[in-house]
């Protein structure tokens, strides 16, 4: 069973470029080209080394001749193989620096999206203040990400764009790209950040054109509009919020109350909670509000108190929506 399951993705992979995923940004073709230049230089030297090694092994294999003699040094030869690689690596260095400067210098006109990384979710905030766990960008225009971390080191990596930058607590870091091909791409955390490092993923959506992107943003930002118009309940908005804010990374919502980093939400409203300091309290509106804004005030017994605060990130009405949503989980 296993070989069949695995053979298919492998074939798909080999059918494309052996080394790279799709090229979907302006800098990707240049990076790949430089990679393949180095690749062929490496192939040349590898074949040279292993070729000579094999030839010498075959030709000079010990038979009857238990003694051998040959040159012990040759200054010209040694100088040549010291200096020649020097020129090749100088060229690699030069090309690498040029490409790197492009990667690190965002155009002035870039569309700025703020990124907040926390264990183990991404939050992208658009210029109008709307924030979500998905990165949406317009095509063929520079986008820059201004990134900060709430807790430990993270790193934002979009393989299809060939960009990566660490997200460091206590300072801002920046990254930019210009996406060329509409579609959906993976975004991964590449700096180890604890238990669910490997699940700190997000989807990047490159829209077909600028107006489609603007329309998406306008619709998505209108969080409470559908509630005011009576199209959705507050609890439905709460469930979407929970998804966008990455609550589900740590809080399960299934009736089996599967254990994650934080307490499960199913049937939680109205329950009595025991805390690590020995006290207890009933889960009500005020308790949930406090847990969102000051998560370490009451840590449930058996849990580590890992949750970052959402003070300043969730508005009152959003907290209302979350509370309504949690009430429905039973």
């Amino acid at each position: 069973m296993l070989p069949i399951q695995t053979a298919l993705p492998l074939c798909e992979m080999l059918a494309g470029d052996v080394f790279f995923p799709q090229q979907a940004s302006t800098i990707a073709p240049g990076v790949d080209k430089l990679f393949y230049f180095i690749f062929w230089v490496c192939v040349f030297f590898f074949v040279l080394v292993v070729g000579f090694m094999t030839a010498f092994l075959l030709k000079y294999r010990r038979k009857e001749n238990f003694d051998a003699s040959g040159p012990t040094h040759n200054t010209l030869l040694e100088a040549t193989w010291s200096v020649l690689p020097f020129f090749i690596v100088c060229y690699m260095f030069y090309e690498g620096v040029i490409g790197y400067m492009d990667l690190r210098s965002a155009p002035e006109s870039a569309y700025e999206i703020k990124v907040r990384a926390k264990k183990w979710a991404w939050e992208f905030t658009y210029p109008n203040g709307y924030s979500t766990n998905e990165l949406h960008v317009p095509p063929n225009s520079p986008v820059s990400l201004l990134m900060q971390s709430d807790d430990v080191l993270h790193s934002l990596f979009i393989p299809a764009f060939r960009v990566k930058m660490d997200v460091v607590p206590g300072r801002y870091t920046k990254l930019w790209f210009d996406a060329t091909v509409p579609g959906k791409y993976d975004l991964e955390c590449t700096e180890y950040c604890g238990e669910k490092h490997s699940e700190m993923l997000a989807i990047v959506t490159v829209h077909n054109d600028r107006s489609e992107f603007d329309a998406w943003l306008a619709k998505a930002s209108d969080v409470f509009g559908p509630v005011d118009r009576g199209e959705k309940t507050l609890a439905q908005v709460g469930s979407e919020l929970a998804l966008r804010k990455g609550c589900g990374q740590c809080h399960s919502i299934d009736p089996q109350k599967s254990k994650k980093t934080g307490p499960a939400w199913w049937g939680i409203f109205g329950e009595d909670h025991q805390f690590v300091d020995g006290t207890s309290a009933k889960v009500d509106e005020n308790y949930i509000r406090e847990s969102v804004l000051k998560p370490t005030a009451k840590v449930v017994k058996g849990y580590g108190g890992n949750m970052p605060s959402f003070a300043g990130q969730l508005k009152d009405r959003e907290i209302d929506a979350l509370i309504e949503y949690i009430k429905t989980l039973k």
Binding site: V31, F35, I38, Y100, V163, T190
Partner: peptide
């Protein structure tokens, strides 16, 4: 190691 010393290429390969 040459791939990783070359800056533009390393950015993609770093921590992979």
């Amino acid at each position: 190691g040459l791939f990783l010393g070359t800056l533009a290429v390393d950015i993609h390969l770093h921590d992979t």
